[in-house]
Computed example of a mutant assay.
Amino acid sequence: MTQAGTFHIQAAGYEEGLTGLRSVREAVFVHEQGVPLALEWDELDPASHHVIARDDAGHAIGTGRLTPTRAIGRMAVLPQWRGRGVGEALLAALVGQARTLGWPEVTLHAQATAIGFYARAGFLPVGGRFQEAGIEHQGMRLLIGALNLVDSRAAAVAATWGVVAGARRRLDLYSRDLDPGLLDQPEIVDAIRRAAAGGECAIRILLQEPEAPQHSLAPLIALGQRLPSAIAFRAVEEQVDRSYPSAFIVNDRGGHFFRPLGHRWEGETRLDGPGRARHLQGVFDPFWERARPCSEYRALGI
């Protein structure tokens, strides 16, 4: 059992936890989201590993399960407990259980509105969206304790989202031209804004072609103008630096997303790889020291 503020996460067998499971899942899925009761309970439930979040009085407030098919599912948190870290704790407990079982990966079907929640935990989208119980879903996957391969723009957005969300004191980003289609996506811009607004995270963005994002009015430039003490831009000028073919983003907690060819989406990511993260920071630092500040990005009066 792990403590987490005013609630705790508890592993539970199906029969012993059934009362708590039903109180949460039927409240959320059946009554709130309109999922038919007959679809909510299935043959996988008795064979699954379940986790239940309980408040200090022992009342169930959240659930999740790990099925024999190595899938995470039935993630639910009562409305009054959302936004308080319950879902994150449930997900971490399920991934930890899969790691203990020696599983190399886990999959899940995320409701479309929850894609960002799972991306922040390192899950990447797989395939297209689909309907399940009348709700739009996206398949997602996480390789446990290993590099996760990025093979699409949607996966690149999710990988970037996860690295940015995990930053605490440092976030370094090396890009050719602020990657249209990636770094201009609203969810990424908002994640960077959140990291910068706290005042503790220094965000350094290094570019090869600073003119292109300026001409296209890239939203990160405007964000940097509003938060100049947290977000700094520089441009590489030495030819040896300009010939660097790759792009990457790396944070101070071992999270990174590396693309061997900076003009493509394909690459590899991991949120818990401190060795690789330190290597990328070592690549970034000398580039940054040799680069010039992008004074043309400053707002008037800054």
Rank of each mutant, 00 (worst) to 15 (best):
residue 83 G to R: 04
residue 83 G to V: 04
residue 84 R to Q: 15
residue 86 V to A: 07
residue 87 G to D: 09
residue 87 G to C: 08
residue 89 A to E: 10
residue 90 L to V: 15
residue 91 L to N: 01
residue 93 A to P: 05
residue 93 A to V: 10
residue 95 V to T: 15
residue 97 Q to W: 09
residue 97 Q to S: 00
residue 98 A to C: 12
residue 99 R to E: 15
residue 99 R to F: 04
residue 101 L to G: 06
residue 102 G to K: 09
residue 102 G to D: 09
residue 102 G to I: 08
residue 104 P to L: 07
residue 105 E to A: 15
residue 105 E to M: 11
residue 106 V to W: 02
residue 112 A to S: 11
residue 113 T to H: 13
residue 115 I to P: 00
residue 116 G to P: 02
residue 120 R to P: 00
residue 124 L to I: 04
residue 126 V to K: 13
residue 127 G to L: 00
residue 128 G to F: 00
residue 128 G to D: 15
residue 128 G to C: 01
residue 130 F to H: 09
residue 131 Q to G: 11
residue 133 A to I: 09
residue 135 I to M: 07
residue 136 E to Y: 11
residue 138 Q to D: 07
residue 138 Q to C: 11
residue 139 G to S: 14
residue 139 G to M: 11
residue 140 M to R: 08
residue 141 R to N: 03
residue 144 I to F: 07
residue 146 A to P: 00
residue 149 L to G: 02
residue 149 L to M: 10
residue 150 V to T: 13
residue 151 D to M: 10
residue 151 D to C: 11
residue 152 S to D: 12
residue 153 R to D: 12
residue 154 A to D: 15
residue 154 A to M: 10
residue 154 A to W: 02
residue 156 A to F: 03
residue 156 A to L: 12
residue 157 V to Q: 11
residue 158 A to E: 03
residue 158 A to I: 04
residue 159 A to K: 08
residue 161 W to L: 06
residue 161 W to I: 00
residue 162 G to A: 07
residue 162 G to V: 05
residue 163 V to G: 03
residue 164 V to K: 07
residue 165 A to N: 13
residue 166 G to S: 12
residue 168 R to Q: 15
residue 169 R to E: 13
residue 169 R to L: 05
residue 170 R to W: 00
residue 174 Y to R: 10
residue 175 S to I: 02
residue 175 S to W: 02
residue 175 S to P: 01
residue 177 D to S: 13
residue 178 L to K: 02
residue 179 D to F: 06
residue 179 D to W: 04
